[in-house]
């Protein structure tokens, strides 16, 4: 039931019920009480958060949802002002505004083998998609990569829902030494039964995923992370070029067919506010110190 007069936060107070540091000062996960969002969230959905009255709206993927407990999980990488501020919050604190679920969910159907590729913080977002595929009865192969073993997220969680978890690290501290896409390529060479590949991670990784799967002709999706304001189709900030068409990632995505995405443009547009982002971050650091 809806709490009458609740100003912000769909159906709850958006309380942070648990915080777990995954990589100190870099990546953490938060379990947030948000019953309505939890009851609706599907793999591939994201939420938009605003932390203070003067804050920015930022999108974060819903990495997991528990409709029974009314909880959602977010995993964030500290990038700039907003995520750094988020990282100062802990158990018992609340998120001022939390809006979701947003975006089109991943189209999941029972179809056989699905390879889920995750890089860096993208592994968290990929986790929900892998879980959805597992529940749908697909054979899930998770391919994950990070710079080193300590930076690798969600491996134990993925092991529970994957047929196998293949790992790569840049420094060779765990699994294959090199890039995730090399592991992906090798896997595709050995398993002709793969029906679909889904890649979530940094733009260069997603571009590489697109390149690797192309010769195999296997359907490949990537989840784009363009800059968003409203997250519901009203600003056009998130526009991306896919198959020559101008599409809004928040309402027509965030997942698109990898081979059709203009990754160069996406990379370029992510830098649109670099100068201002640096100003914000500097001010935030100064204030934190004083």
């Amino acid at each position: 039931m809806l709490p009458a007069g609740d100003k912000s936060g769909a159906g709850g107070m958006n309380k942070i019920v648990k915080k777990r540091v995954l990589i100190p000062d870099r990546v953490s996960e938060m379990t947030i009480e948000a019953p309505l969002i939890a009851s609706k969230a599907k793999p591939g959905n994201f939420a938009v958060l605003r932390l203070t009255e003067k804050g920015e709206r930022i999108p974060l993927t819903i990495a997991d949802a528990d409709p029974e407990l009314g909880h959602i999980l977010i995993v964030y990488l500290v990038m700039g002002k907003t995520t750094a501020f988020l990282d100062t919050l802990g158990e018992g604190d609340s998120i001022l505004d939390l809006c979701g679920p947003l975006g089109r969910p991943t189209r999941i159907k029972k179809q056989g083998t699905v390879v889920c590729v995750g890089g860096g913080t993208g592994i968290a977002a990929m986790h929900h998609i892998a879980k959805g595929n597992f529940k749908a009865g697909n054979k899930v192969v998770s391919v994950i990569g990070a710079r080193s073993k300590d930076l690798l997220l969600f491996k134990p969680e993925l092991e529970k829902i994957s047929h196998s978890v293949l790992v790569s690290t840049d420094d060779g501290s765990l699994g294959h030494k090199g890039m995730v896409t090399e592991v992906l390529e090798k896997y595709l060479q050995n398993d002709p039964e793969v029906r679909e590949v889904i890649g979530v991670g940094p733009v260069p990784m997603m571009r590489a995923v697109a390149r690797v799967t192309e010769p195999f002709g296997v359907r490949t999706l990537v989840s784009l992370n363009s800059i968003m304001v409203d997250g519901m189709g009203m600003c056009g900030s998130c526009r991306v070029t896919v198959d020559g068409k101008n599409l809004f990632a928040c309402v027509e995505g965030p997942e698109f067919e990898a081979s059709k995405v203009d990754f160069d443009e996406l990379m370029m547009r992510l830098n649109a506010f670099k100068a201002q982002e640096q100003i914000s971050m500097e001010l935030f650091k100064q204030r934190k110190q004083s």
């Binding site: 809806l2 007069g5 912000s8 936060g9 769909a10 159906g11 309505l36 809006c99 979701g100 679920p101």
Partner: peptide
């Protein structure tokens, strides 16, 4: 007034 409710998504 219930903000952050997206008709069709949240409710």
């Amino acid at each position: 007034f219930l903000c952050n409710y997206v008709g069709g998504m949240t409710v």
